[in-house]
């Protein structure tokens, strides 16, 4: 800790001394059974041989990763060429998830700002309103979205009836529909952390900046955004990560062209046609990408604090 910094709780106070880790025993069990074990299993499965009816044969094999990255022709006897299909799906998924994150940020930040600047009594009402739709199952919400935006759905019928459009917009099965689905699914994950950060924001900082000749946009850019940045980053991670692996929105609202990682992985484990080691390998690759994003963020954060 830097010299002169306020004493943090928990480093020297006798209140915090003692064997607190024993109390964590239940947590360790939960984390072990439901988090570490499945990831470990997936890692192991990705290096096994596939069984054609689904499932695995316990025999070490790199086939799953090989299939992901290399094309060896129809019969597997040609020299390996880089396989672009799955990399393309991954790239498209990252792009889609990024766009959804951006959309959530653009809508979520002003929303969070609005809520955090209401008087304290009405804030909880606004937060409640934001979270109400999330009491309904995600599947049902996504299907409802499909009914809303399909060519014969209320949105198109309304726009046709008031004469804004001559023909249905044809929204369904497009990237836009997937975007809409992702945006709608994960918006609160953006709003809530930003709200928490803005609520703690000291508005005299804005006054100080205005006093020092900063206009409104300058205040936003140089003071507000840097100060609430932890909330924004948390919101972006919370939206980006599940969007990347989402399969409901692309499956139900998108078409063949909007195939995403989530759907690819899901297919490998569905019915008898699947390929478990390949699904596991794709999951491991996805996990690696997410870990890299988080590590880069964590390292950045440390650098900022150490400065």
């Amino acid at each position: 800790m830097a010299a002169g910094a306020p004493m943090g709780a928990g480093n020297s106070s006798r209140i915090y001394k003692g064997s607190g880790w024993k109390l964590l025993f239940p947590s360790w069990i939960i984390i072990g059974i439901f988090l570490l074990a499945p990831v470990l299993m997936m890692g192991v499965y990705s290096f096994l041989t596939k069984e054609f009816r689904g499932g695995v044969i316990w025999q070490f094999s790199l086939d799953a990763y090989d299939q992901f990255f290399f094309d060896r022709g129809l019969f597997g006897d040609e020299p390996p060429r880089l396989e672009w299909t799955y990399i393309g799906i991954f790239w498209r998924s990252i792009w889609q998830a990024g766009l959804a994150t951006l959309a959530c940020l653009l809508i979520g930040f002003p929303t969070a700002w609005f809520i955090a600047t209401r008087d304290p009594k009405s804030r909880s009402t606004w937060l409640f309103l934001v979270t109400i739709p999330y009491w309904v199952n995600l599947l049902i919400r996504t299907v409802s979205m499909k009914f809303l935006i399909r060519d014969t759905g209320p949105l198109n019928e309304f726009l046709l009836s008031i004469g804004v459009i001559d023909a249905p917009l044809g929204l369904i099965n497009t990237n836009f529909a997937v975007q809409l689905g992702l945006f709608y699914s994960y918006l609160p994950f953006m709003v809530l952390p930003i709200y928490a950060a803005v609520e703690r924001y000291d508005f005299s900082l804005s006054e100080a900046a205005a006093d020092l000749y900063a206009g409104r946009w300058t205040i936003l850019r140089l003071v507000i955004l840097p100060v609430v940045k932890p909330g924004i980053v948390a919101g972006c991670i919370l939206v980006f990560v599940p969007s990347l692996g989402a399969f409901l929105a692309p499956d139900l609202l998108g078409g063949a062209k909007t195939f995403m990682i989530g759907s690819l992985i899901e297919e490998q484990f569905k019915g008898n046609a699947g390929n478990w080691p390949f699904g596991a390998a794709a999951s491991m690759i996805l996990l690696t990408i997410v870990m890299c994003v988080l590590l880069v963020y964590a390292r950045n954060q440390n650098k900022v604090e150490a400065r």
Partner: peptide
């Protein structure tokens, strides 16, 4: 005139220093 056009500056009760900037950057802000 809005505050950012008035040639007066304020020392705030709780200082309102920009926490993400160094001392020099704070002083250079205006």
């Amino acid at each position: 005139q809005p505050p950012f056009k008035r040639p007066v500056n304020t020392v705030f009760q709780q200082y309102a220093l920009f926490p993400h900037m160094s001392v020099t950057e704070n002083v250079m802000f205006g």
